[in-house]
Simulated scan of single mutants.
Amino acid sequence: MAEPGLEIDGISKKYGAVVALQQMTFDVRPGELFGFVGSNGAGKTTTMRIALGVLSADAGEVRYAGERITHETRRHIGYMPEERGLYPKMKVGEQLTYLARLHGMAAGEAKASAGKWTERLGVAARRDDEVEKLSLGNQQRVQLAAALVHEPRILVLDEPFSGLDPVAVDVMSGVLREKAAEGVPVVFSSHQLDLVERLCDRIGIVRNGRMEACGSVPELRSVAGGAIRLLVDAPAAPPDWATALPGVRVLGREGDVTELELGEGGDDQAVLRVALDTGPVREFTRKQPSLTDLFRSVVSGHQEAA
Rank of each mutant, 00 (worst) to 15 (best):
E32A: 04
P166F: 13
L148Q: 08
L276Q: 15
E159S: 09
L86C: 09
Y15Q: 04
H191K: 01
D165E: 06
I205D: 14
R286A: 11
M211D: 04
D165H: 06
F36T: 00
R127E: 13
V206L: 14
S216A: 04
F284T: 03
P30R: 05
I205Q: 13
S297F: 09
I205N: 12
A100R: 06
G38A: 02
R221K: 07
D158T: 09
G247E: 06
E151C: 11
L121G: 11
S56W: 05
T97W: 05
A227Q: 06
L157K: 00
G78T: 01
P289C: 04
E219K: 04
L231W: 07
Q23M: 00
A224H: 07
E264D: 11
A124P: 01
K14L: 14
L272S: 05
D27T: 09
L294A: 10
P246C: 13
A125E: 08
M105S: 15
E219P: 09
W117Q: 11
A2M: 14
E261A: 15
A107S: 13
S190I: 02
V281P: 10
D27F: 00
I154N: 01
R49L: 06
L245S: 09
R101A: 10
L55D: 08
M24V: 13
R29K: 10
G60E: 04
Q192T: 04
G16M: 08
S39F: 00
P239V: 12
A213C: 02
E197Q: 14
G163D: 10
A107C: 05
A213N: 03
C200A: 12
G53R: 07
D201S: 15
T118I: 10
K179Y: 11
L176F: 05
G252T: 11
M24F: 03
S222F: 07
E132T: 02
I77P: 02
E61V: 02
G31E: 05
E32V: 01
V248A: 03
G5D: 03
V187R: 00
